[in-house]
Amino acid sequence: MSPYEAILLTIITASTPLLLAAIGELVVERSGVLNLGIEGMMVMGAVCGFAAAHVTGSAWLGVIAATFAGIATSLLFGLLTQTLMTNQVATGLAITLLGLGLSGLIGSGFVGLPGVKLANVSIPWLSDLPYVGRLVFGQDPLVYISIALTVGVAYVLNHTRVGLIIRAVGQNHASAHALGYRVIAVRYACIAFGGATSGLAGAYLSLVYTPQWIENMTAGRGWIALALVVFSTWLPARLAAGAYLFGGVWILGLYAQGMGVGIPSQLLSSLPYVATILALVIISTNRRLSLINTPASLGQGFVPDR
Rank of each mutant, 00 (worst) to 15 (best):
Y4R: 01
L9C: 06
T13L: 15
T16C: 05
L18S: 03
L18D: 03
L26A: 04
M41L: 15
A51M: 15
A53N: 06
H54A: 14
V63E: 07
T67L: 15
A72C: 09
S74Y: 11
L80F: 13
T83I: 06
T83P: 03
M85A: 11
N87V: 00
A90G: 04
G92E: 12
I95D: 01
L98K: 04
L102S: 13
S103Q: 07
S103D: 06
G104S: 06
I106F: 14
L113V: 06
L113C: 04
P124A: 13
W125P: 03
L129G: 05
P130G: 07
G138E: 02
T150W: 10
V153M: 08
G163D: 14
I166M: 01
R167M: 14
L179C: 10
G180F: 13
G180R: 11
G195Q: 09
S198T: 12
G220S: 13
L226I: 15
V229Y: 00
V230Y: 11
F231E: 08
G242V: 12
A243L: 02
L252Q: 01
I263F: 01
P264S: 12
S265K: 14
L267D: 08
T276Y: 06
I277V: 15
I277M: 09
I282S: 03
R288N: 05
S290H: 07
V303C: 01
